[in-house]
Design a protein around this nucleic acid. Structure first.
Lengths: 140, 140
DNA sequence: CGGCTAGTTTAGAGCCATTCTAATCTATTG
DNA sequence: CAATAGATTAGAATGGCTCTAAACTAGCCG
């Protein structure tokens, strides 16, 4: 785990984000945060919820994911056109992306250093630095 | 310019990539490569072609862009879910991404250093490292 | 407890970038 | 110039995501 939310249960998480603890949000929060760091797509998460007999629509999954992002509980990772990944690890880190399987693997922030970053274009400030290392199955 | 294709005209580019020099491909190659480094979307490029009175369908624009990528003439930059940018600069470099305007700005490869990259997951090899620095309009 | 209301959820339609299909066209070769 | 492999095309299809408007519910107040 990233260790950034020790002991926080789903209810506290939602309270902290000023989101009403509805059945759907509680269930999604548990699916997301009860098993350590995860990278999921909206569709995957929806599938898990349905499998867990939690009645939730895909629209609600998207709504909830975006609310969690707004609350800083989640981060969006963009590696592929036309599909978003949601990352439960919101601490400073980067990613390996295995193109064939579509899997993401965390790289802790202190295991990688980005140096000599030039000044951003005039009138802008850096919001975030994303490093994506694209890997492929090793050629034999 | 990235300077990687000095004196190459559109015809030579296509020949070198074993692509038949059709009217559409020649026109798109000129639009892409005759004005230095560019970051375009498929729709933009299609618009430019139409504006230049080159009859070309959006499907052909997509086909051609992917063929150019396959030939190493172009690179795809993924910063936004649901929209791809095509980058005519295929040399080693990275990007600032200005979220509000959707603009990309090149960062030359030698102006940024990524250090301490950990070994990739077992059985995989690094194909490419993408650094995307997301910037926002400076808060006053 | 019963109602009230703002906030939530939902099915289904809609949107948009991209890809597919199958028919037409064209660059190249003999 | 005819034959044909390859290219282009319009339009339909796809897929991820968002919107809409109606039904539901958590939290509040009496």
């Amino acid at each position: 785990m990233s260790g950034s939310r020790p002991f926080a249960n789903a209810l506290e998480l939602l309270r902290g984000a000023s989101l009403r603890p509805t059945r759907q949000r509680l269930a999604l929060a548990r699916l997301l945060f009860d098993k350590g760091d995860r990278h999921v797509t909206a569709e995957q998460l929806h599938g898990e919820a349905v499998a867990a007999a939690v009645p939730v629509s895909l629209a609600t999954v998207y709504n909830t994911l975006h609310q969690f992002i707004g609350a800083g509980l989640l981060r969006e990772v963009v590696v592929n056109p036309g599909r978003s990944y949601f990352d439960t690890n919101v601490s400073d880190h980067h990613h390996f992306f295995i193109e064939e399987s579509g899997k993401l693997v965390d790289i802790p922030g202190d295991h990688i250093a980005v140096a000599n970053v030039p000044a951003p274009p005039a009138g802008t400030a850096i919001r975030r630095v994303d490093v994506i290392i694209r890997v492929e199955r090793e050629p034999v």
